[in-house]
């Protein structure tokens, strides 16, 4: 498996190099290779472990998840995560019952505020988990969203 990943990554990097040399600017050089293991994980624990290096998070009320109580269309669920924690370094979003729970990780650099708004897909009714990294610790909050039509597969 490891070797296969290696090959795949090398090929992808090659493509980036090609794009870069043809004058396109790509973010590839800024980030390390895409975290395939975490995004492929089938349960919340291993997804968390892959994304942030630990599965232990402290529940807090300082993270606010704004999401609809009932989402009619699971393919497009608007969510907003904000936090009053100081110095938030990253925000990770998971949907507990998706086939692969990890949705996205946002790394905030220096001046960014703890605020992210986006739209996600949800397979079925599930908790949304938001994890914020602050001062070397991980804090989490969750909120249930009811989904009437799933957005994965279909």
């Amino acid at each position: 498996m490891q070797r296969r990943h290696f090959l795949k990554n090398t090929m992808a990097t090659g493509a980036i190099a090609l794009a870069a040399s043809s004058g396109l600017l790509v973010p590839g050089s800024v980030l390390a290779a895409w975290n395939k293991k975490a995004f492929d994980a089938k349960d919340v624990q291993s997804a968390l472990k892959g994304a942030i290096g630990t599965e232990l998070t402290e529940a807090t009320d300082k993270i606010k998840i704004k999401a609809p109580q009932i989402a009619e269309n699971g393919a497009v669920v608007p969510i907003t995560i904000s936090s009053t924690l100081s110095n938030v370094k990253s925000i990770t979003i998971l949907s507990e019952k998706n086939g692969t729970p990890l949705i996205a990780k946002f790394n905030l650099k220096g001046k960014s505020e703890a605020f992210i708004s986006t739209r996600i897909k949800m397979g079925k009714t599930s908790n949304i988990i938001a994890v914020c990294e602050s001062g070397g610790k991980f804090y989490s909050a969750r909120k249930e969203v009811k989904v009437t039509i799933g957005g994965c597969g279909g």
Binding site: P27, N35, F39, L108, K109
Partner: peptide, 26 residues
């Protein structure tokens, strides 16, 4: 020219993604 946000996305971001965020000092 200085990065303020780096995001890693999976397949569960909706089609035609929307993203909003804030930063200080601009």
């Amino acid at each position: 020219g200085a990065p303020v946000l780096e995001a890693e996305w999976g397949v569960a971001i909706s089609k035609n993604p929307y993203l909003s965020f804030k930063f200080k000092g601009g």
